[in-house]
């Protein structure tokens, strides 16, 4: 994704989040909120900000635990959000209680594997593994 596209997606996602939160949109708040993630000239800043806004949107659109792990946190490769899946996941698991919902989703899938045949869970396991490495819980590969 080009930097400009990344900025556009961040803006659109921020707007959506304001709508989900039921608040009046104050565009002047956008840049300061992004700046909290770093220097606006860097790509990583925008990726982290977009991941954060995505994670909050996911929580606020009150999703069911199975789609959470099979789709929203684990987007298909051709979805633009795939590129910020790590940032989204990292932001999501920092939200208190969010891990419970992931656990619930995985429990349900493992509890009745026949209902979920064909679901691609590799993505979510890759995210968990990556997250564990970042935190020093697994040796760096």
């Amino acid at each position: 994704m080009k930097l400009q596209d990344l900025k556009d997606k961040t803006w659109e996602t921020w707007l959506m989040l304001q709508k989900f939160a039921g608040v009046v949109v104050q565009p002047e708040n956008f840049q300061p909120e992004v700046r909290a993630f770093g220097d606006l000239r860097y790509r990583d800043t925008w990726k982290r900000a977009l991941g954060h806004f995505m994670a909050l949107s996911i929580v606020r659109s009150v999703l069911e635990p199975v789609s959470l792990v099979t789709f929203y946190l684990n987007p298909p490769r051709d979805d633009w959000s795939w590129e910020v899946r790590r940032e989204t996941f990292e932001a999501y698991i920092r939200i208190p209680g969010a891990l419970d919902l992931i656990r619930e989703g995985l429990n349900e899938i493992f509890g009745s594997p026949s209902s979920y045949q064909g679901e691609d869970l590799n993505g979510i396991f890759e995210l968990v593994e990556n997250s564990a490495r970042v935190r020093g819980l697994l040796p760096r590969s």
Partner: peptide, 19 residues
Amino acid sequence: SAYELARELNSDVTERGAA
């Protein structure tokens, strides 16, 4: 939305509660 409604009914709904 369900989130807004939950917040209206329970002022102590946090992000966790929202989930």
